[in-house]
Design a protein around this nucleic acid. Structure first.
Lengths: 222, 222
DNA sequence: TCACGATGGATTGTATACGATCAGTGATGA
DNA sequence: TCATCACTGATCGTATACAATCCATCGTGA
């Protein structure tokens, strides 16, 4: 008989995670165990486990006897998540800098060039996808799996609580591309690791600040 | 009827976490759902959820159809966990430095003085407890709850995978006390945050290095 | 009209039951 | 003697059932 290679609870987890990452599950959305179980054609028990795992990662909040809701786009939460990611990703990028293969640096440069080109005919979604990939290349060689894990969780969490900074602050894209090149130059020139770390951290903090400034000046003022 | 304020799965989680933190559950120990359920006087379902959460935090490993085992004292794992904690705790300490009340700094100084006194009649367990408390004072005012959470998880994880560095490298205690004072001086003098961050990070990395050096020179050589 | 309490549906929390899977043990045959 | 295989006990994975709890709605009385 065809036995599933992975458990149902695992599949439920993957399922929900993907929905969160791709935005089908908008913040504030309520996760009802029974419904999810129906969609996955299983009972609620595996779904419960999956939801618990998501809770442990801070992607959803859970209230006893009430259920889970997708974490909302709270500005404060956004701030904290971005700040945390700036610290972790900065460290990960620095740790990876010394051992990243030249081929991958080249790939990152190429990607950034594509991002620069796309500025002319700007599509936030597309740009965001390339941006995510760009940073993934840089930090993915981090030799510390624990840090790597935290970075990836950070990105997932970020993606789950907001669409994308570039949707709301398109002008940030220009600065971002320039900072990417600067970062690559630092890595290429074997700059001290703390310099690379600071650059990577500041890059993220700059994005955060761009977002916060935009929040203070609502669109109505434009 | 007396209704439990918290769910059983929550209680199971707390129960296991405490056992891990206080070392009743030694690395390599096998967690059998049924046994734990018996101890807690409940069915296995809540226990499963708790174990899943522990797995999501990396405190136990889980194998399908086999069960959970407490993460072992792998030197490499230890290295990665400490390195991660150095990054996160450094950031947390720096972020907290600007807003920590004078009373708490005084409490930290007092605690460190007690640690210095205890060096004469050294008890690793007692020293470790004070050390944990000392650092908790410094980082607990970190305004970013997300980072704070990661620091605390890091400590729990560290405690769960090894007894204490000071058990194995007692001489590190002397340096540690001195570094604590230096760190407090930096905070007191309102040093730049990145200086404080670096000091806190190095403090932890020094402990890590002390541990690693001792590993390379097994006790038999003493 | 408004405040307040009862009621019912929806949802979660947990126990129990049973099939699936794994690891160890002893028997069998070369 | 040794490799192989069937068997068994332990444990996990999941479905189902039911109790506990919450939330919204409606009715009642002032």
């Amino acid at each position: 008989m065809a036995v599933p290679a992975v458990s149902k609870s695992e599949r439920a987890y993957e399922f929900l995670l993907q929905q969160l990452a791709e935005g089908s599950l908008t913040p504030g959305h309520r996760l009802v165990l029974g419904r999810v179980a129906e969609q996955l054609n299983c009972s609620v028990v595996p779904v419960r486990e999956a939801v618990r795992r998501l809770e442990a990662e801070g992607l959803v909040t859970f209230q006893r006897n009430v259920g889970a809701t997708v974490q909302g786009v709270d500005t404060e939460l956004m701030l904290h998540t971005m700040e945390t990611l700036s610290v972790i990703e900065g460290a990960a990028t620095a740790l990876a800098a010394g051992i990243i293969p030249a081929a991958d640096i080249a790939a990152a440069r190429k990607l950034n060039a594509a991002m620069r080109c796309s500025l002319a005919d700007f599509s936030p979604v597309e740009f965001t996808a390339m941006n995510t990939q760009f940073h993934a290349i840089l930090y993915s060689h981090c030799p510390n799996p624990h840090i790597l894990d935290l970075v990836q969780r950070g990105w997932v969490r970020l993606n789950s609580i907001r669409s994308s900074t570039f949707v709301q602050v398109p002008q940030r894209a220009h600065e971002s591309v320039a900072e990417h090149d600067a970062l690559l130059d630092l890595i290429d020139s074997k700059a001290p690791l703390h310099t690379i770390e600071r650059a990577a951290r500041n890059h993220r903090l700059n994005t955060l600040n761009a977002y916060l400034n935009q929040q203070q000046q609502p669109p109505s003022l434009l």
